[in-house]
Design a protein around this nucleic acid. Structure first.
Lengths: 211, 211, 211, 211
DNA sequence: CATGAATGAGTTTTCATTCAT
DNA sequence: TATGAATGAAAACTCATTCAT
């Protein structure tokens, strides 16, 4: 059929298609770049090789990202968004706050297990861009914490978690524990299964060391 | 031996003195270098400026360290040793295992509070030397853990901490929590006093979130 | 021919119209390009921005000029032709040779006063295209000089200018003086009015420094 | 003799010698660079080839000049100073103002005849560094003019040059004529001998075109 | 031991030009 | 004709390391 009664005229369709092509290629670049940045480090990763790896010309890279630095940030941001999404998705089906927490923790650990490159990117970012006031990870932190604060408050009001430690402290401590665990898993390796680790972490988070 | 009965034999004394001079300068270099590496990052820190800063010639640096990389490792190692010493010193006067842990945690947090450059050095190391199998921090980790394992085991045998979580898990979890807290304090700032933070951390470590 | 008896036959008219459209756009490109080349220099002027400035696509520029270099030459040539026309127009109404000279000098100075971009283009041309045997300015020089040689010869034959200096020398000297004045006005600024400058220049040309 | 009663102790002598070595090499670089900048243009002259040409490493160039731009300026400045010196030297032995002018004009034309590279450098400077408020040539201009103003004033007071044109105008006109002549000689070639040209220029400067 | 001049490999980014649509 | 995405060559500058003095 030449020109059906489609609501989107050819011109727009072309533009949309064009725009989609662009978005797809952008993402392909980000994915490959993230891997490389993580594998060999920001400084040692050169744009020429990245381009060759992607099968495009060096200059083409610059049609999608204005600089190596911006490309790097795009990688870090993409990772953070994926992580957030993974955690949300894991918690979402569960109504009970404690269950939400339980699944969120699990999803967090699992995400970095499956995407070790993003752990590396956090490190690279901090090391290479000290001038950025706060690393991307901590930019997202407050936003994430906002959502969980409500959950903890509700639990506290229901008397289901202790009241002698402010919610704010709890958020920090759980966050720090997970943050440290993610790093340690990555750098030193995890000796036990993710399930075991998750169970042990939750056991301590819930009841602490004392009997 | 050609050394006469002089209380300080000239030859040896000369050598010793020489050796001491050398050690002192080595340390001076390491201290200044650690600060610079932390402040501006490994890649942006150049040997020329470091030498100028120390008031010595660029070539002289190479009489003390064979390369920039080795100098950097020396900085990281020095930091780890200081940290270990600080923690040991804090725990040592206390006989009771729980008190030892209490003071050790406090000393750990305090050390990185007072030496933020060492937090940075860990980051720099991981970012710049991916080829090294494990970061220095994790090299020391097993050694440190060995000493604390005994403490936790003793507590468990005494029934003073829970038995349903293996000591190994406890060591990991406490370690990870502290590791995460140290990083977060450094990157995102600490909103409360060290004492408060310490108290909150210990409260959760001891009793968990549940009431 | 398929062209009906329309007053403007479609085919020819279309071609002519087409050709005119093309000429107009060529000129528009040259004008804008001349300004940009002059303002920011040949090397710093990029085809992409020029195209954007003109509201056309980068590739379209290449439908009108085979290369950046050729576009540049077109700009310089256009400038020279305008200058020549301005000088001719100024001299044309005057019959008396001395008056013709007087008005031509004035027109020359005025042209570069009003079109400083062409001064810049001469500079740019020489700096960027050393391989061209002679700059455009000097290509036109002989041609211009031919026309004026007759004027000077006539004056000399009439005994109205001195005979102890060959006309050739006079042409050179007057040309050089104007050339130098044009540059100096442009680069160092003119401290007096164009009229005053013109008068002073003519006074020296006519009578020299001596009383 | 090992260490004669020389007034300069070894240390100073070493430093002085070092400093002289450096000055000599600086000059060697400037000379070679001036030639290359003039021959192939500022933009097309790359530091790598210049270094190779000088038999030194690229990095060494940067020990003497902080950037390509600064090296270029050093070349232009050196040329201006040599020119000034040549003109001074030519005028200096003569007491009579008219003779001083006569010899200065001659020296000016001769200098650029023998150092065509400096003509090119003026062009290159203007073309490549439009941001510099005024080209080097015009920076020196006022300074040079200051010295000659006195000469012309004296002549005017003695009634040896005309009084109906201000000295300021005369300075400008003579300057512009020489400036234009220098450029034209360089770009279009000189058809007659320097002596002839000099004579013709002086004839017009002194007496103008009219009989 | 100490110096610091010399080295040269290594990398990001720009932009004129092409060509498939 | 017009477009603009893709290309890839080209060059300034840095800095760890060496070595003659």
């Amino acid at each position: 059929m030449s020109a059906p009664a489609s609501p989107s005229p050819p011109a727009d369709a072309g533009a949309a298609q064009e725009s989609q092509r662009r978005a797809e290629r952008r993402q392909a670049i980000v994915e490959r770049a993230a891997r490389r940045f993580a594998d060999i480090g920001y400084a040692d990763c050169d744009m020429g090789n990245l381009a060759k790896d992607l099968g495009i010309a060096k200059g083409t890279l610059y049609l999608y990202f204005p600089s190596k630095e911006e490309l790097f940030y795009a990688c870090v941001d993409a990772g953070m968004q994926q992580m957030q999404a993974a955690v949300e998705t894991a918690a979402e089906p569960h109504a009970d706050p404690l269950e939400r927490i339980w699944h969120a923790v699990r999803a967090y650990l699992e995400f970095f297990e499956r995407h070790p490159e993003h752990v590396e990117l956090f490190i690279q970012e901090r090391a290479s861009f000290k001038h950025r006031k706060q690393p991307t990870f901590f930019n997202y932190r407050e936003q994430i914490r906002g959502r969980w604060r409500a959950v903890y408050l509700q639990l506290q009001q229901q008397g289901r978690i202790r009241s002698d430690v402010p919610v704010e402290r709890m958020l920090e401590i759980v966050g720090n524990l997970l943050y440290g665990t993610m790093f340690t898993n990555h750098f030193a390796g995890r000796q036990i299964s993710l399930d075991e680790q998750h169970a042990a972490v939750m056991a301590i988070i819930y009841r602490g060391l004392l009997p």
